[in-house]
């Protein structure tokens, strides 16, 4: 019963956030300096009288504001994210084409950074005060302070231009015509640099967080109980500290999903990765506002879904949640 309530509440919340972003988009269109129709058309379409007139009719721009909002909301929720005049295709088409590439990149960066961050954080906490601890924590401090896009450029400079180890641009070798496993290997090779550069910033965060969390849990009373039971140190860390320490890291990682998407915009821009981040950058360059707003809405929705899933998973992993909920 309680789980049902929880599921229902979380779903409602998720839907409300998405609707909120749609309303935010609507407000932005109207608050922007200039004619809302021009925003809806994008810079390239604003010169086309016929297109503008069509947009006015479609969004009822001469109707009262709340009616316009309703029209807009209805349109977006039925999957109509507007029309890109520049590309002459619906925005939803553009985004759907690009979404898989972004999901691949962010998912691999997420797994990479979380796995590496936890391993490094646990190791640093276990050997607190050692040289290894200092090295790991200094590295984390530096990467936490480095702009993502710059790390990406430096990676290209070193690993592609100077060492020529890895391909610097795009998702696969253009015109190579690989299929099956050969294609997968080709994509994987292209994936390495973007994943690592996007992941390093987050690795730094998770390393610091894991270490702090481990040290905090190590000071709790039940760890003393375990020692009083005669449990060896290694087992105490594995069986008692680790699980209690890692739960907050997972929560935080879920909250960070939005940041990861933001980072993808920068990474995809540098590596010409054909995802929605790159699409956003191109739209920026062309002042193609319908695409910009569409990408914004879709990224927010992806984050909402990720948060929803992790919340549900968390509920399974931590037995205490049900009682508190």
């Amino acid at each position: 019963m309680k789980t049902l309530d929880f599921l229902f509440q979380r779903l409602v919340k998720a839907v409300l956030v998405v609707i909120g972003v749609v309303i935010l988009n609507f407000l932005l269109i109207h608050l922007a300096p200039g004619d809302p129709a021009a925003v809806l058309a994008g810079e390239a379409g604003a010169g086309d009288e016929k297109f503008i007139a069509q947009l006015r009719a479609q969004f009822g721009l001469d109707q009262p504001l709340h009616w316009q909002l309703w029209t807009y909301l209805k349109g977006v929720l039925s999957g109509d994210l507007g029309f890109s005049y520049r590309n002459q295709v619906p925005v939803s088409r553009l985004i759907l084409d690009r979404l898989p590439a972004t999901l691949l990149l962010t998912a691999s960066a997420f797994v990479f950074s979380l796995a590496l961050g936890i391993v490094l954080g646990v190791a640093a906490a276990y050997r607190r005060g050692s040289v290894a601890d200092s090295v790991v924590m200094t590295g984390a401090l530096v990467f936490y302070a480095t702009p993502l896009f710059w790390v990406a450029l430096m990676a290209v400079l070193v690993f592609s231009i100077h060492l020529d180890w890895l391909p610097p641009f795009d998702m696969e070798t253009i015109g190579a015509g690989y299929t099956g496993w050969a294609r997968a290997a080709d994509i994987a090779e292209h994936l390495v640099l973007p994943t690592v550069t996007l992941g390093m910033f987050f690795t730094a965060i998770y390393t610091r967080l894991t270490r702090a969390s481990m040290l905090e849990v190590m000071g709790l009373d039940f760890v003393k109980t375990a020692r009083a039971k005669g449990v060896p140190k290694g087992r105490i860390v594995r069986r008692h500290v680790l699980r209690n320490a890692i739960l907050p890291v997972f929560t935080f990682a879920s909250v960070q999903a939005g940041q990861l998407v933001g980072g993808a915009v920068l990474t995809e821009t540098v590596f010409a990765w054909p995802g929605i981040g790159r699409l956003m950058f191109d739209a920026l360059m062309q002042r193609d506002y319908p695409v910009l707003l569409g990408v914004f809405l879709v990224t927010a929705t992806v984050v909402v879904i990720v948060n929803l899933v992790t919340d549900l998973l968390y509920r399974i992993v931590d037995p205490r949640i049900e009682a508190a909920g």
């Binding site: 940041q259 998407v261 980072g263 915009v265 956003m280 909402v304």
Partner: peptide
């Protein structure tokens, strides 16, 4: 929840 950088952009 909204991706910060995307919103700032």
């Amino acid at each position: 929840t909204i991706p910060a950088l995307a919103m700032a952009i």
